[in-house]
């Protein structure tokens, strides 16, 4: 003990360098993160359009928000679109993760499939939306001999929607539910590869001995999945759920750009206002568009913040609890062996 102390002593002076090294981070954090956060909170309690915080009006901005139909619309929209994207996403990601890690099936071309499935994740959302517009676009009408419209030309995904009876005989991008489906599908398309990679890492992290023991016991693949893989992956799934919710609450680009095209006056615009607005779009528009309701925008971002933070904290505690899951599974396997 004494020895190590004596050796470290000459370097003790050098430890002051650490403050110099972390100074840029701390300064940038204080200036670009902490100050803006505090100022956002201050705005949320300030009077409308007030840049000075003298008129502390407490909760008036929050009251306005809670009575604002548009806010609730965007709040509900965010969750609807999130759920429609996340549930299929996590199922597909889990399916492919299990498929590509399973040692009995031994898929060929795993590397290629992984490469392809992850690819959309690096694309710019702005470009993705436009590519998908082509995919979902309704083309020219097709007439029969009596000049009655019997259908439309269109992109391949448009035909899929039509086949499922969801095109409502008009452009899917102009309808409340179909436009939500389109947005959710784009998000699914962009993110399921990412979740898949995370799950594959999780499954590879499970020691082979667990699977081996199950194999020796003659457990069916389904049983292995539901009683070993899934429970061990629970913390990772929770992690992915919470990060997705936090990311999903900040959803902006895709809904905003999908909506951006509803400029054609001949088309009903209701689909563009109430069915694609998310909380972030709400905040952005209050902040950016005159009359610049910073107070309202601040209050909305505080609500968003409290929401995300409580979810994150919940995740933190759940993850701490689940730390020794693998040991639990071992115990369970041993129990089966005894029976």
């Amino acid at each position: 003990m004494f020895k190590s102390k004596r050796i470290r002593n000459p370097n003790e002076k050098l430890n002051k360098w650490a403050y110099l090294f972390i100074a840029p981070f701390i300064l940038a954090f204080l200036f670009f993160s902490l100050y803006p956060m505090i100022s956002s909170i201050a705005y949320s309690f300030a009077n409308e359009n007030e840049t000075v915080y003298e008129n502390f009006t407490t909760f008036s901005n929050y009251k306005i928000i809670f009575e604002d139909v548009n806010f609730w619309h965007s709040f509900i929209n965010t969750f609807i679109i999130f759920a429609m994207n996340f549930i299929p996403q996590i199922i597909a990601a889990m399916f492919f993760a299990v498929l590509f890690t399973n040692k009995r099936i031994r898929m060929k071309g795993k590397g290629f499939f992984k490469f392809v499935y992850f690819l959309p994740n690096v694309l710019t959302a702005a470009t993705v939306v436009i590519i998908f517009r082509l995919m979902f676009m309704r083309g020219a009408a097709i007439y029969d001999e009596n000049m009655q419209i019997i259908g439309y030309e269109g992109g391949p995904f448009y035909h899929v929607l039509r086949f499922l009876g969801m095109d409502m005989f008009t452009n899917p991008l102009y309808h409340t539910w179909t436009v939500r489906i389109v947005i959710a599908f784009i998000l699914f398309w962009m993110w399921f590869g990412n979740s898949m990679i995370v799950f594959i890492t999780g499954i590879n992290g499970i020691s082979d001995e667990v699977f081996e023991a199950a194999d020796v016991d003659g457990a069916s693949p389904w049983r292995v999945f539901f009683q070993i893989t899934l429970p061990i992956l629970k913390p990772i799934m929770l992690y992915s759920l919470i990060t997705s919710i936090i990311g999903g609450l900040q959803m902006f680009d895709i809904p905003y750009l999908i909506r951006g095209q509803n400029l054609d006056p001949s088309v009903p615009v209701f689909a563009g206002t109430s069915s694609t607005d998310t909380i972030t779009i709400y905040i952005y528009e209050k902040m950016k568009i005159a009359p610049h309701d910073y107070g309202i925008a601040g209050a909305a971002s505080v609500i968003l913040f409290i929401f995300s933070l409580s979810l994150s904290v919940a995740m933190y505690f759940v993850l701490f609890k689940e730390k020794n899951y693998e040991k639990k599974i071992w115990r369970r396997i041993k129990k089966y062996e005894q029976v």
Binding site: P36, S40, I246, Q250, I283, F305, S308
Partner: peptide
């Protein structure tokens, strides 16, 4: 702790700054 804080909170403050 900072990693899990959503950046959206600072948006209004950063914009006015």
């Amino acid at each position: 702790f900072l990693i899990i804080i959503p950046g959206q909170l600072g948006a209004v403050g950063f914009y006015t700054m």
